[in-house]
């Protein structure tokens, strides 16, 4: 059964098309990588799914809900069920690790309880569990600006996990990390998918990483979905189609 159904999704920025007629379905529990050159619409796609960007046309159904029709509290509630992690982590650096992780619960709370930072004991327990899962139990009260890049990204993952999401969107999660931290992060994402059954949709710049981790790869070029298949089908020719380069011009060759 499909968890996410994207149909004929189109996004205009002024006159230029960031996405044209994108259609695909993602099954529950899949690990899907999105690749393509800069400006091909990867980020726009991911941000349209949780409505950080409003799509111009088409439809998105997540968990049987018409995402594009939602407003106000209903939209907040739908967003709460989708986790998201970012290239630049986007943590509140002046706050502690656990405070940042608990931000993932805000979508489920009344405005006042969220404003005052009044979290229930279950929520706090959940946050601690998630931090243990990600190997951050020694950093619970550390301020986030004192963490390394890889640790910050793990806090980002923890924040997404306490939302109890069925899907996590990852917007270039390893682009600011060194290779070893990047591997740790990708391994955690795979574990989350395998052990918790959470769907992962991840934007990547590294084709080799996408091939190693994903079960399915979506390739974008100039806003069009030009490849949709398993990593085994992603041969050199297809890669060059996605990146629009002549054979032999890519760094991975």
């Amino acid at each position: 059964m499909a968890l996410l159904e994207v149909e004929r999704l189109t996004k205009f920025y002024g006159d230029s098309r960031a996405l044209s007629d994108v259609t695909f379905k993602i099954k529950k529990g899949q690990f899907v990588a999105v690749i393509g050159p800069s400006g091909s619409g990867k980020t726009t796609l991911i941000r349209c799914i949780n409505r950080l960007i409003d799509a111009s046309d088409g439809s998105i159904r997540y968990d049987k809900e018409d995402i594009l029709a939602l407003k106000g509290a209903a939209l907040r509630h739908a967003r709460a069920k989708i986790g998201m992690i970012f290239q630049h982590y986007n943590l509140v650096y002046r706050l502690t690790v656990i405070e940042n992780v608990l931000h993932g619960r805000l979508g489920y709370k009344s405005s006042i309880a969220g404003v005052l930072g009044m979290y229930t004991e279950e929520e706090k327990t959940k946050a601690v569990e998630v931090l243990q899962l990600l190997g951050l139990e020694d950093y619970v009260y550390r301020r986030c600006d004192q963490l390394s890049g890889g640790q910050k990204q793990r806090v980002g993952i923890a924040r997404a996990l306490v939302q109890d999401p069925r899907m996590i969107l990852c917007d270039e999660p390893i682009s600011s990390l060194d290779p070893s931290s990047a591997k740790i992060i990708m391994d955690y994402l795979r574990r989350i998918q395998k052990d918790l059954g959470i769907t992962i949709l991840v934007n990547l710049h590294q084709v080799d990483v996408a091939k190693r981790y994903a079960e399915r790869i979506l390739g974008f070029n100039a806003g069009h979905l030009v490849f949709d298949g398993p990593p085994s089908e992603l041969n050199k020719k297809r890669i060059h189609e996605i990146y629009g380069t002549e054979a032999g011009e890519l760094i991975i060759d």
Binding site: A78, F86, V92, H103, V115
Partner: peptide
């Protein structure tokens, strides 16, 4: 801007974003 995006993405309301991210920062 990314911090605000992150909290919006988790379903936080405007007031929650103000008190949990903007004011502490």
């Amino acid at each position: 801007e990314g911090v605000i995006d992150a909290l919006r993405a988790s379903g936080a309301s405007w007031l929650q974003i103000v008190f949990q991210a903007v004011l502490p920062s």
